[in-house]
């Protein structure tokens, strides 16, 4: 299996009067269809690593390959285009647009990409919402939904353009355990049944237990990397 996402010697230093090193020389390869958890204590640099892998942030040094394409030296717009087509993000806070209906939130990335016309985008949005079990909420607004429902809508939005990789930053961090369990199961199914690569940052041990592979981060370095048997 070829690596869908590969990083070599990633270093991220926040410049300033006292420069802060967030990520120190991280190299890893992520295979297609893997469900990976990145774990570590607060401030260990796991989110920073996720931002680097998700092309949201640019490493101080080191290289990232996405789908076999090296992204070093890409400008902001090139990186944005890769994110739009190949990556989907889910964050701890749902970050849905409050003035947009659930369906409009999900179709936002589809419409930005512009490959589907309005009715096809709508149909795809409804399919995704249906798959995540929130299609009844499609006309509602985010504030009318429960936390778990919002996170499922956010996952539907992340899947809108059929990305290769879903990146999740503490996706269950703000949910009760029942909702957290549902979200965990959804992400696992995405990897195992739909062949998506899922990379999730978490410090929730029960969440991590569901993963195929766990990467431990301490002080910006990979401390442990083990696969479930």
């Amino acid at each position: 299996m070829s690596a869908v996402l590969r990083a070599e010697h990633l270093v991220r230093i926040l410049p300033g009067e006292v420069p802060v090193t967030l990520v120190k020389d991280v190299s890893l390869a992520i295979e297609h269809g893997e469900f990976i958890c990145i774990m570590g204590p607060s401030g260990s640099g796991k989110s920073s690593l996720l931002y680097l892998l998700g092309l949201l942030d640019v490493p101080t040094s080191g290289r990232v390959w996405l789908d076999g394409e090296e992204t070093s030296g890409y400008g902001e717009d090139d990186l944005a285009n890769r994110r739009l087509e190949k990556l989907g993000f889910v964050f701890q806070f749902h970050f849905l647009l409050a003035e947009f209906s659930v369906l409009d939130n999900v179709t936002l990335p589809i419409r930005r990409l512009g490959r589907l016309d309005a009715s096809d985008a709508r149909a795809r949005g409804l399919t995704l919402l249906d798959r995540l079990g929130v299609v009844e909420q499609s006309a509602k607004y985010p504030h009318q939904l429960s936390g778990g429902q919002r996170q499922r809508v956010a996952i539907a939005r992340a899947l809108a353009n059929d990305p290769l990789i879903l990146l999740a930053d503490e996706p269950t961090g703000n949910l009760d355990s029942a909702s957290g369990g549902t979200v965990r199961q959804i992400l696992k199914d995405l990897a195992h049944e739909m062949g998506k690569t899922v990379v999730a940052v978490t410090h929730d041990a029960s969440f991590a237990a569901a993963a195929d592979r766990r990467i431990g981060i301490v002080d910006g370095r990979i401390d442990a990397d083990w696969r479930a048997v």
Partner: peptide
């Protein structure tokens, strides 16, 4: 969030 989604 729009930028993370891929908006320029």
């Amino acid at each position: 969030i729009l930028k993370s989604m891929g908006f320029h």
